[in-house]
Amino acid sequence: MNDLAFLTYTFISIFVIVNPISGVVTFISLTSHMTFEDKNILAKKAVFLACIIALFFAVTGNLMLDLFGINVDSLRIAGGILLFRVALDMMFAKVSGESITENEISESQDRSDIWIFPISLPLLTGPGTITTVIVLMGSTASVGQKFLVILSILLTFFVCMVIFLSSRRIYTHIGYTGMLVFTRIMGLFLAALAADFVTTGIWNVYRALSAGA
């Protein structure tokens, strides 16, 4: 896989699981009482923190796996199963329990730190996003590819920033129905990514066991 193809693959993988368009509905509901300026300040803080969290796990993920004695392929299989569950929720246009529950959205209405919870974590950087960036970094074959994963994270959250800053305009133009359609399409891509994670992980584990036999 050349660098451009790898960058495209990693960017799409991260963007699909972060799914900022789907997050717009929750973001608007949580910031509906705010002024335009306050909403934009909150969006910038939330996306920046989410990006830092994703970068942190991308850089330290392999160290954590080594610390707990977990193979990246084991995480790939477990992560694939988790992502498939999220993908099903997206395809049926449900709020995914992996990221945020309806009760958490309701309880967050009057909080002053909603940019931390639930927007940054877990809406943008939930377990699915964290698993994805760790697996992608663990799959790299060179320092150059690791840089491309980092670049994909930065690009994803740059797009998130643009989308959140334009959230009310986006909602006005495409509406709730348009967001549901987009979410279902992203869910289909995420299901394909989840299947790839699981099959690749099982195949790698099988080859490792065969080689050690």
Rank of each mutant, 00 (worst) to 15 (best):
D3T: 12
T200L: 12
L154M: 14
L190W: 07
A78S: 09
Y171N: 11
F48N: 12
G128N: 03
Q109P: 06
H33P: 01
C160G: 00
F27T: 01
L83K: 01
E102D: 12
A5G: 13
G80F: 02
A192D: 07
A195G: 15
G178K: 05
I41D: 07
L75Q: 10
G201C: 08
I174L: 03
G175I: 03
L30D: 01
S112F: 06
V95M: 05
T26A: 14
A58L: 12
R76I: 07
L190Q: 10
V198E: 02
H33S: 12
F6K: 12
S99K: 06
L30C: 02
L121S: 09
Y206G: 01
A141I: 06
K94N: 10
L88D: 04
F48M: 12
D110V: 00
A58R: 12
S106D: 08
T60E: 09
D38P: 05
L136Y: 09
P127T: 07
A141D: 10
T31E: 09
S99C: 11
V149F: 08
G61H: 14
L88P: 01
I21G: 05
F189V: 03
S152V: 06
F68C: 10
D3Y: 14
I150P: 03
S22V: 06
G69M: 05
N40P: 06
L63C: 11
H33M: 04
L209W: 14
A43S: 13
F189K: 02
G61A: 11
L4W: 15
V135D: 12
N40D: 13
I28L: 13
I100C: 07
M179D: 02
F6R: 10
A194H: 03
R169N: 12
A194T: 03
V86C: 09
L82W: 11
F92S: 03
N71V: 11
A213I: 08
L75I: 04
M64F: 15
N71H: 15
I153E: 11
I185S: 01
P20D: 02
I170Q: 13
G80R: 08
M161Q: 10
T183V: 00
R76C: 08
A211F: 10
T156N: 04
I163Q: 04
L188S: 08
T172D: 14
I100T: 04
I174Q: 04
L188N: 05
I14D: 05
A5L: 15
D196H: 09
S142V: 02
R111T: 05
L136Q: 13
C160L: 01
Y171D: 06
D66T: 09
L193V: 03
G144D: 12
L136V: 07
M137L: 01
T8N: 06
M64I: 15
C160E: 00
T199G: 10
I14M: 08
S120N: 04
